[in-house]
Design a protein around this nucleic acid. Structure first.
Lengths: 223, 223
DNA sequence: TAAATACTTTACAGATTTTTCACAGAACAT
DNA sequence: ATGTTCTGTGAAAAATCTGTAAAGTATTTA
């Protein structure tokens, strides 16, 4: 899932600064230079959040806020240079979700954006993607070539452990300790058996799990 | 609709000031004088928002925030006397929804509280719609194929929790903590029993509640 | 207070998952 | 090439987990 943020500000420098910050966070940005453009863009793009400057040509920020709130609950952050309490209250009571005064600190800005994107971020950050293999940690579902495969809980945990240690060779002992909580690797072939089943279930992605003879296993999507 | 706000602050003066402000707005308040009390009260009362002071005996605000976030998304405002950017960032990234520095202005405080409550109310007044299943959160009525079904209070809360976490696998422990306020999942089959009844009452929608063996349950209208 | 309703606990069967084990086959060293 | 070591495999045994009924406890209603 890609998160898209609409940035509306008439000053080029500010616009680019904000976009840079957001892109650094891995978000996609769409820019508007005036109120009218902001409203139009919002209608045609699927936007997850709006950063809205108050002073803009055509429509000012307040007007844009009001118009968008007539039909959408999208989170909106109001940006302004005016440090006035009146303004802040006005912004918040007109339906804004947050209110930030310029100049703002990078970190606080990012933190406040992230609070409003909490749900989307949660979803996004829980999906692991490896070519034909996707692992959704929220629904605990695993997909190979877009098709869901059924793993048992243990198989799922084992796969997750290997994936979390991508490109790192882990011994059977380490795997046992991390996934099972105890070590039984000296006497049994338990892990090998599960790896076998896992590879089979992963189908074309089965060989992402590499055997490192004499040591253990490692997950790597390379060839 | 009745809105209840939990105010946690060890200073009596501040506590009463905040409660006065909130009661003026027509909100009901519950007060806690330390972190432990805050957590306990939250578990037993149905709270719509928490105002949380950082410096408190027993558990400080950060700890309370963290503990509550383990099982609840309730809006939380952090209050602090320390004007420090580090703190604000810490608060916001630890799961707070807003951060207010003391001393604050009456109006700004009210505005920020109202923003969070507005969202909450909007969320709570939605009719949830899943194919043949409708849940009217205002009247707490549930319909399957247009026909109302009778759920007990507990069954309703359980269903709502599962629905709010659509497509997310939740463990019995999480369900217990979120719905009951304590965990009893290790020793009893209480949840399974309620799930059974719920499925039966949901009729054709019964299989929206999926069992995820080894982990817990998840709500999903898919197939 | 009695009756009805709601909720929790318990025990157990059936289903599924996990482990074990013996052996076959591959990789490696000499 | 040969023996040794290590890994893959299939099937059966063991362990675990869930659904369910039924009984017990608590709470609400009349």
């Amino acid at each position: 899932m890609n998160i898209k943020i609409l940035v509306a500000d008439d000053e080029k420098v500010m616009r680019e600064l904000i976009c840079d910050i957001l892109q650094n966070q891995g978000y996609e940005t769409v820019v508007a230079c005036d109120g009218e453009e902001a409203i139009n863009l919002f209608k045609q793009e699927e936007v997850d959040l709006i950063v809205l400057d108050v002073m803009m040509p055509k429509y000012d920020g307040w007007t844009v806020l009001k118009k968008i709130r007539e039909y959408s609950d999208v989170p909106i952050i109001i940006l302004t240079a005016l440090e006035s309490e009146r303004n802040e209250i006005h912004g918040l009571t007109s339906g804004a979700d947050d209110y930030i005064i310029k100049p703002f600190s990078y970190e606080v800005f990012v933190a406040r954006v992230n609070v409003l994107l909490k749900k989307q971020i949660r979803k996004k950050s829980q999906v692991l993607n490896y070519k034909n293999l996707q692992i959704d940690q929220l629904s605990c579902k695993v997909f190979v070539c877009e098709k869901e495969i059924q793993l048992t809980n243990l198989e799922y945990k084992l796969l997750l452990y290997l994936v979390e240690n991508e490109n790192i060779v882990t011994s059977r002992e380490q795997i046992f300790l991390s996934v099972w909580g105890y070590d039984n690797s000296q006497t049994t072939r338990t892990i090998d058996t599960h790896i076998k089943v896992l590879r089979a279930k992963l189908g074309v992605c089965g060989d992402y799990i590499k055997t490192v003879r004499g040591i253990g296993y490692s997950f790597s999507k390379e060839e």
